[in-house]
Design a protein around this nucleic acid. Structure first.
Lengths: 331, 331
DNA sequence: TTGTAGGCGTTATCAG
DNA sequence: CTGATAACGCCTACAA
């Protein structure tokens, strides 16, 4: 294994120059058909594989991209990132590119910095966006091509995202349309852009029919369960028609609280989730939720980044292939 | 960004040779204290970063390792892989190494092959082991240093694993000790070594007290829910004392079936899981399970691989820091 | 159509 | 203690 055959070995064996071999492989530059065939045949037979690192050094390319991976993960978010990664991998591998994961926890972006400063990658995919977005800031300053998954307040950042806004608005509208207009909204960190987007979708569902959402029924930055239990009880007391959770984790906790409090879903309370992570598959009540094609999202992001690396013009986009899955929890 | 400063620029600016600069940075070879200080200061001020790719070409190293990532994932396994990855990343980043994920789905190892043939990495971590283990076979043939997480039938493969065998035996023994000796075991794919290991732990818990496990109560290769529902009903009919599931996914499904069948846990049936994925956090019954330090597992695997890459001798090992968490489901 | 020579940015070898 | 010079393996003007 140690000693792989080099382009020079091939050249010597065939009595041609390294240039000729290089051209036969890359297809660039003029080269005789027979020579080319001869070289390619030899390469095939002797299992020659070009050294991508050397190639990269010469071309100033690495044939790798970095994907920023959240180390401060919630279990509920993993399926999303995983599915995105699968999509990215499918695309990049088609172009001979590999994926370097750089683990970022909160504002601790030293892994990202290292990979950029070491010029280990040609570009970066950000897998989520934040309000105060240190990773994005850093990348922009560094000048490396990058694409962010999620919305961004900064117009100059190239983004791609599931159309969470439309999807959340649609789900909310459906519930309102079914007569459940007194809806509560529970969500996570307000530093995540996704939280803002979902919030906007929810509130605009009211506004477009000329109503105002009830802000007193909206609770964000939820992380500990105790607070959530109090909130659910309070909401039951206020006799809300339903609760929409921004993700399945929260929805699971709501179910759990309701079970303890003997609040029946959907009889006493309707429940929906803005993101189906399939974590709730075995929940006592099947939960109405939104379904996105995350794998495709990852694939599109990867394609955009590769174009960007090739110097092509790329525009931000929203993907609309989501589904609203109505289940028993909102019957 | 495009034009980073090179070692030659530094050398010229300081009126010394490239060699001297290189020595100041690496610390290798003799060099005067003042010269060294001068160089390091200049480097610091002008933000010079060595080109790791060029360095790699010269030293025949890439300063990256590959981590084989299962693309054919079950949601329940994600937290395990994620926690391992975090541990690996913490270790590798300390050594200036980056992690390339190579997505492998079943026997489709083209991504792994590419990354090896392209010499993009110095070594590989396998995140799970199989009975018929194509990835491991390939790696062994290729001669790249690699470490596998999980047990292996092949003694020559260097592995590291949580002590699943001991842990499973202990949990099983505890239940038997509590008088629940008629236990069923439900598990997943028999092509996964982990399934075999857990099976052995379960059965040996009986054998070491001179009993034989009841093979008719053991069901493996479970994947679809319908079959599982039948099995659970059948088990209830046979009046087993308890059911042990190899993972939380199965445990969740058992809970779900029991709810539908009005089988009460733990009154009618005890339930335990061999792996706590925290997916069951909001289950209607808190489930007795095993808890492992996966992050540490990943960290150890990474350290082993880095040693291996440095040509040191490395031995397989089992990690014993697991916990048995007793909850309501086995009361 | 093919070959030569130089460069990509480091490290390693061997003199001085 | 320091400095030329040659690798590392590939690409690419430029020349033939």
């Amino acid at each position: 294994m140690a000693n792989q055959i080099t382009i020079e070995d091939v050249a010597n064996a065939l009595g041609v120059s390294k240039t000729t071999v290089s051209r036969a492989i890359s297809g660039k530059g003029r080269i005789g058909e027979k020579t080319k065939a001869k070289v390619l045949e030899y390469i095939e037979k002797n299992n020659y594989k070009p050294n991508v690192v050397a190639k990269g050094l010469a071309q100033r390319r690495t044939f790798s991209i970095a994907v920023v991976w959240p180390g401060d993960f919630l279990v509920v978010d993993l399926p999303f990132f995983q599915r995105c990664l699968v999509g990215m991998s499918e695309v990049t591998s088609g172009y001979g590119y590999d994926i370097v994961v750089s683990m970022v926890m909160g504002d601790e972006i030293s892994n990202l910095k290292r990979v950029i400063e070491n010029r280990k990658v040609d570009g970066v995919i950000l897998t989520r966006t934040l309000i105060d977005d240190k990773p994005a800031e850093y990348l922009q300053k560094s000048g490396v091509p990058f694409v962010a998954i999620g919305a961004s307040l900064d117009e100059s950042i190239i983004t791609v995202d599931n159309n969470n806004y439309e999807a959340c608005m649609e789900l909310t509208s459906i519930l309102i349309g079914k007569g459940h207009s007194k809806l509560a909204l529970l969500g996570g960190s307000q530093n995540h852009m996704i939280t803002k987007t979902r919030y906007n979708g929810f509130t605009d569902a009211y506004r477009r029919i000329g109503k105002e959402p009830d802000e007193s029924l909206i609770f964000l930055n939820l992380s500990n369960e105790r607070r959530l239990a109090d909130i659910v009880k309070q909401l039951a007391h206020k006799k809300v028609d339903g609760v929409i959770c921004m993700d399945d984790q929260l929805a699971g906790e709501v179910i759990s609280v309701c079970r303890a409090e003997r609040i029946k879903i959907p009889e006493d309370l309707r429940l929906a989730s803005f993101y189906n992570s399939s974590i709730l598959e075995n929940a006592s009540v099947p939960v109405t939720s939104l379904n996105f094609d995350d794998r495709n999202l990852g694939a599109v992001a990867a394609r955009m980044l590769l174009s960007l690396i090739d110097g092509e013009a790329v525009e931000s986009q929203k993907l609309n292939n989501y589904e609203v899955i109505m289940k028993e929890s909102t019957k």
